[in-house]
Design a protein around this nucleic acid. Sequence first.
DNA 1: CCCATTAATTGATCTGCATCAAGGTTCACG
DNA 2: CGTGAACCTTGATGCAGATCAATTAATGGG
Lengths: 248, 248
Amino acid sequence: MLNETLTAAPRSCGDCPIQHRAVCARCDADELAQLDKMKYYRNFEAGQTLIWAGDRMEFVGSVVSGIATLTQTMEDGRTQMVGLLLPSDFVGRPGRGVAPYDVVATTDMVMCCFRMKPFEAMMEATPHISQRLLQMTLDELDAAREWMLVLGRKTAREKIASLLSIIARRNSTLHLEQPTGQIVFDLPLTRDAMADYLGLTLETVSRQVSALKRDGVIELEGKRHVTVPDFHRLLAEAGDDSDGGMLV
Amino acid sequence: MLNETLTAAPRSCGDCPIQHRAVCARCDADELAQLDKMKYYRNFEAGQTLIWAGDRMEFVGSVVSGIATLTQTMEDGRTQMVGLLLPSDFVGRPGRGVAPYDVVATTDMVMCCFRMKPFEAMMEATPHISQRLLQMTLDELDAAREWMLVLGRKTAREKIASLLSIIARRNSTLHLEQPTGQIVFDLPLTRDAMADYLGLTLETVSRQVSALKRDGVIELEGKRHVTVPDFHRLLAEAGDDSDGGMLV
DNA sequence: CCCATTAATTGATCTGCATCAAGGTTCACG
DNA sequence: CGTGAACCTTGATGCAGATCAATTAATGGG
């Protein structure tokens, strides 16, 4: 399956590739029209920082296409990724003035942005939006808790396998398939970003990726293109429950 | 300050110690009356498991008094705490049939439980509840992300200092004070639970607590009673920003 | 009051990952 | 085509924290 990434903003909400999964998913035509008045599209280039931690937040919004990361930094420079934002994910928090994390584009991106004030006002008035946002936030909280187990208790090899299976899973749910048997995808992250995600160094990431390749758990073509011949094997390497009970 | 824990259910919502912070915080008298019909109080003893991962969820609810933990377990027995539930925190997810984590009481507890079905129905109809729950969930997500930094990037000593400062902070916000200068509190967790929280072993926890005591960062009376002579020193040990910018 | 049980401390040793260091690949651009 | 920059891999070594093991408080029940 080819990666026909959307590089331009959709013409209207009806054309929007994330219309069924974004914050606006439960909105009716009327509500979409209201949102339309406070929204604007923005493009970002790979590597660009959308928002700096500590900055005043000017908008909230949805990732339409592309990928971004949420990262926390300590004074001495140590960093930890705390969120991976894929299409349909929501950025920003209504009612918060200052961004707590850096948001960085790892690929070219399109965002659907809403001006803060009117969006907040609409949230008060329109249950559909806060209800949908609640669902999405609860899902994110689940993901964060899964991630905490990975960070706190898994070995480097298990961490890598976990990350790969998460990406594989997200990719296939995006394409509405069950992840079984052989899976193929492109890594959206550099080794360095993977290390940031998993609380490792990039050297360890590189070594463990090589080890998984050597052991036949994955196949690599170039540095980014991954083939997983047996998804259950990968899950087992991740230390996850053998019968891959889908949570999402 | 003494720990006058509530050991019995409040007589009515007006007496409820968490009325201003719980899911129901924004509800008016009418809505409280509605909630009253679907709620019941339950007591749990220290050590008791409220909910087993994989079990059918029968209720959602609020912690009225006492403390519980949310824990994830791997097949081989490794465990990671993924949530620490204090008074006013919400347990369970509307619309979810099966519990994803173990919920265990670490002290005697009182919970204000709502039957699932009617609560879900009310959430659909009453924006106040889902709006409040959204706020609370966003706060929890922030806490989870802070926690991810701790798990992924901090040293054992920093982890312990971080946990102590989190508890100190929560304790003092509960008593509506600014955490400054000297702070005194009781640890609500065993060394083992602390290890589970921080992704360490209990031996390492014990050693690092002793080290912080030896270095005068904390004073101990017994195993649980902690005095922090200088809160900023503790924050510095935690690797946190020196000017303790309050997020909560 | 004593004994059993659970929680915590402390020590000795081992190991997984970090750290330091040196190439190797890929790709854009002059 | 050659050069630099970004990214990745691999090797050698060191150390923080895990593991294994023994001892010492606390706690509660008969």
